[in-house]
Design a protein around this nucleic acid. Structure first.
Lengths: 339, 339
DNA sequence: GCTTCCTTTGTTAGCGGTAACATATCGACC
DNA sequence: GGTCGATATGTTACCGCTAACAAAGGAAGC
């Protein structure tokens, strides 16, 4: 920067100003600095800038997994929103564990991010402590604070900002839909039992209870990560246990696709003998045979909105403590042909 | 750090040493520093550390897209390998454009990464210049320098390190496989025409020429991003143009899955009337009906190996210019039932 | 002509660590 | 006992930039 300053015949401070806020210097100086800067191939060091200004222009983004399309979409939304504003996402992968999340968060905080985006609301007390101690904005995603069954970990809702949708309501909607379709022996298949999956299941359960058709025996919950292969396998297990099942809710579309494939293989007509519903409306769900009924979740939009909220909080030089907000982006029941 | 030093009754430098290389201080001092550090909740600032030591512990990772599973797998491999060594990946999304890539790289370089991972070898001259000017290790992925049809952009192979596999050979393998199966009227469907896709197509073409069965009319290339929906649509277009086609190579598994779905819908028996082959062996390819013949690509392994090479280069304090290496991780033809 | 105020540029002093070197301490060895 | 070398800790100066304040110059107002 000193070289550029010398070349442009100004002080280093003026170079800094000319490059960061071009209209804070005269047009003539700006031109000279820009020319010198370009000629010398000057790239300002963000590290030094961060140290001097206490703004790193980075945002910690904590997600459970990189191999689940749901969180990738979230990340994509975050990335495409932050990027034009000059912010760098720092991804942290927690592997679905609250303890790991705390560790990862701690590691990320060493980078002094200007904001934090987390997945879900199930954090360790240590994580809540860390978050409370931060002076930068924090946004939680994929869930709502008003959600039942969460258990307020002593943190109150004070200042917690969330962008998501009601997993419970979404599960309820699927359950109600299957009941409305006249199905009576409705089963549930779920993997990757994170809190959001559990809430979906709770909603589904409630819907079936409300319809007087809940049968706990027809629930098949396994801890494994969801996949097409697992869906195929679990379909067989579910039908072996209860051959008369006439509808199934699978907690994620990859499971549902696997189940559909297996039905085709076993010659089980869908939806005639068995209705199948998935969740998330992942890529391809509209094209399966038959097209899959599922719940479209606004994953990318959640990422975009979370990033927007964060940017608003970060640009706010007044550091006004933002009012807690709980943005509900909703979901859509996509009724297709498998039900 | 000064507070911790005071609390532990040592100098700041000793605190720094105790936390970074614990065995460079006496056991007694180490214990005192660790206790004070924990008690005060001290988290060393990586920003300051980066400025003072000229090591940011970050790695720029440039990929074309976050919505293509191929690059997510690559990223996952990189992330899981870097993370235990304390390195933070900085993701940059280029949108498949060499010019955008140069812009993104420039932006990432402002963060002073300790290493760079790029996708592919088709970079702008400006990008090559930037890379040449770097003093940190660089690894290219998903391709091989020895690949034909690349066009050496005047950069020679000097020092270029690559981890990938031969896209050409993989395409050739699929083409040869379809020919071996006795198919005579073989078509090609491709989207997202990046250089790697083109190389696959080149390989396929060569295989068909070698078998004396290449028919340029049966190639359907579109620039759109690949998806299940696109696969379904292009299958119809391809068959409308050439109803007698008896085999199709689709350049990505999502296209192939869409095509399979559409075949089911149209009542076209696979593989009896039409053989279908995909590429990448994405999740679920083994479970489609019938299971999809495809080429398994070592995407995650490429990420892991690229990160390993990078780490080796970064830890090498001697800054010995590493010998150019071209790591071929190969591919596997997964013959399943669609062919 | 002289304030006053605003705009533009410069000066100074750090941000929070770490490299490099200086210094102290101790035991071993002749 | 004195010297040497290894080990442990301290001191100093900076990494490259920017906040905060200072200064200079020009326009506006009386």
């Amino acid at each position: 920067m000193a070289d550029v300053a010398a070349a442009a015949g100004v002080s280093a401070m003026t170079v800094s100003r000319a490059l960061r806020r071009p209209d804070s210097v005269s047009a003539e100086v700006r031109a000279r600095v820009e020319e010198a800067s370009r000629r010398l191939g000057f790239v300002p060091s963000r590290v030094a800038s961060a140290l001097a200004s206490a703004r790193t222009m980075t945002v910690a983004v904590l997600i459970p997994s990189l191999t689940n399309a749901v969180f990738i979409d979230l990340l994509a939304g975050v990335q495409e929103t932050l990027s034009p504003h000059g912010y760098q996402p720092l991804i942290g992968v927690t592997g679905y564990g609250p303890e790991a999340e705390e560790r990862v968060l701690r590691a990320q905080l060493a980078h002094d991010p200007d904001g934090v985006i987390l997945t879900g609301l199930d954090h360790t007390p240590g994580t809540w402590d860390l978050l409370r101690s931060l002076t930068v904005p924090v946004v939680h995603t994929m869930d709502l604070t008003t959600e039942g069954g969460l258990g307020d970990g002593g943190h109150g809702d004070g200042g917690v900002r969330t962008v998501g949708f009601s997993q419970f309501d979404a599960g309820y909607a699927i359950g109600a839909h299957l009941a409305e379709r006249g199905r009576r022996r409705i089963g549930l298949i779920a993997g990757q039992l994170d809190p959001r999956t559990r809430q979906r299941c709770d909603g589904w359960r409630q819907a079936l209870r409300d319809a007087g058709r809940h049968d706990p025996d027809r629930e098949l919950l396994v801890p494994d990560a969801t996949s097409v292969a697992l869906g195929a396998e679990l379909l067989e297990r579910a039908l072996a246990a209860h051959p008369d099942t006439d509808a199934l809710f699978l907690c994620n579309d990859d499971l549902a696709q696997g189940a559909l494939f297996q039905c085709a293989r076993l010659g089980i007509p869908v939806p005639e003998r068995l209705a199948v519903a998935g969740f998330n409306d992942l890529a391809g769900a509209a094209w399966t045979v038959p097209p899959l009924t599922t719940v479209a979740t606004p994953r990318r939009a959640i990422g975009v909105e979370a990033a927007r909220l964060l940017i608003a909080g970060m640009e706010d030089r007044a550091q006004s403590r933002p009012e807690p907000r709980c943005v509900d982006l909703g979901f859509r029941l996509m009724v297709r042909e498998t039900t």
